[in-house]
């Protein structure tokens, strides 16, 4: 187990370096941040040179990357052009997004697996067809449309939940954004669970469990569901990173100052340090979630062992 984790961690290093380098190149090679800083005016060459020197922008790209990586190991994500340290931005933004993602992820798991289980057990019945049509519609409507429609109906017209989240994030104010963020993934999880549950419900081990007289509850939860969860967990792991990146749209609609908000500002203003810093953390979360998924396989299916 320990050796497996170490091997996986070592394998992550090239992927981590590659992803961060890719985003570094994309941000730096496309467009000149110093020119962007001056807007439409041509920058004064002396000032521009000074700024370039201050942010190491006059060095070749690979050296800039090495300097950045070196600083990263001392937990220094650099400074933005207006003098804020990116580390402090990260510290304000990530808690908000993590709260939002946690709410969305909980909704996704509970309702996605729940709907999938119900429809997979009664394949062809009316509840199955309802879930299928409902998920198809949810997948087709883009998040920003769902967001505005729900905000308008639930938040403004009916006034059931707060329409925007604002500064202090309570569970109540995060419920609506959480539903919006979770909606598309929820539909995918429901469909995936439905397929695997329907497939496994014909499996021999389920027949055995029924034959030996186990109560239905136990058959479904301990035997059927547990064996059906592996593809679902794989999807959920990959989706965790996507949720945090996808919060861009949701955070904008519900006015949450999280990762998406600062990333968007960073991209539009070509604040390279912000973009690279935020994406680096996103990549680490994505890789960690994938590792966690692989370790969860062994919990779900004891036949899987990591030597």
């Amino acid at each position: 187990m320990g050796r497996y984790v170490i091997r996986r961690l070592l394998q992550m290093i090239p992927v981590f370096l590659g992803s961060t380098f890719l985003i570094f190149v994309m941000v730096h090679a496309l467009g000149d941040p110093v020119n962007a800083l001056f807007g439409d005016r041509a920058p004064d060459p002396v000032v521009a040179a000074q700024i370039r020197k201050q942010y190491n922008l006059d060095e070749p790209l690979w050296l800039q990357y090495l300097i950045y990586m070196g600083n990263l190991f001392r937990w220094d994500f650099g400074t933005t052009f207006n003098g804020q340290s990116v580390t402090s931005l990260l510290a304000t933004a990530y808690p908000a997004t993590i709260k939002l993602t946690a709410v969305a992820f909980t909704i996704e798991v509970i309702f996605g697996v729940g709907f999938g289980l119900i429809s997979g057990l009664r394949r062809g019945g009316w509840s199955d067809n309802t879930v299928l049509i409902f998920t198809l519609i949810v997948i087709s409507i883009p998040t920003f449309v769902t967001g505005y429609v729900l905000q308008y109906l639930v938040g403004v017209q009916w006034g059931i939940l707060p329409a925007t989240a604002g500064e202090d994030l309570t569970l109540e104010s995060l419920l609506l954004p959480g539903i919006v963020l979770a909606s598309v993934s929820l539909a995918y999880v429901a469909r995936l669970t439905r397929t695997t549950v329907a497939e496994n419900s014909r499996a021999d081990f389920v027949r055995t469990a029924v034959a030996k007289g186990l109560p239905r509850r136990r058959v479904v939860l301990n035997h059927l569901l547990r064996n059906s969860l592996i593809p679902v967990v794989t999807f959920l792991g990959a989706d965790l990173g996507a949720l945090m990146g996808g919060a861009l749209v949701t955070e904008r609609i519900f006015n949450i100052h999280g990762v998406g908000f600062y990333l968007y500002q960073g991209i539009v203003r070509q604040n390279t340090a912000t973009v690279v810093g935020f994406v680096t953390i996103l990549i680490i979360i994505y890789l960690a979630a994938n590792l966690l998924v692989d370790l969860l396989y062994a919990v779900l299916d004891p036949r899987i062992r990591y030597a």
Binding site: P14, V15, F16, G18, S19, L22, I23, M26, V27, L30, G31, G241, A242, G245, G246, L248, V249, L263, Y264, I267, V268, Q270, V275, V279, L282, I283, Y286, L287
Partner: peptide, 20 residues
Amino acid sequence: RITDIFFGIPLLLGALVILN
């Protein structure tokens, strides 16, 4: 490995950076 590297970057985010 190259596909692994690209998978770490969300599509929407990368597209924003390129298009900007």
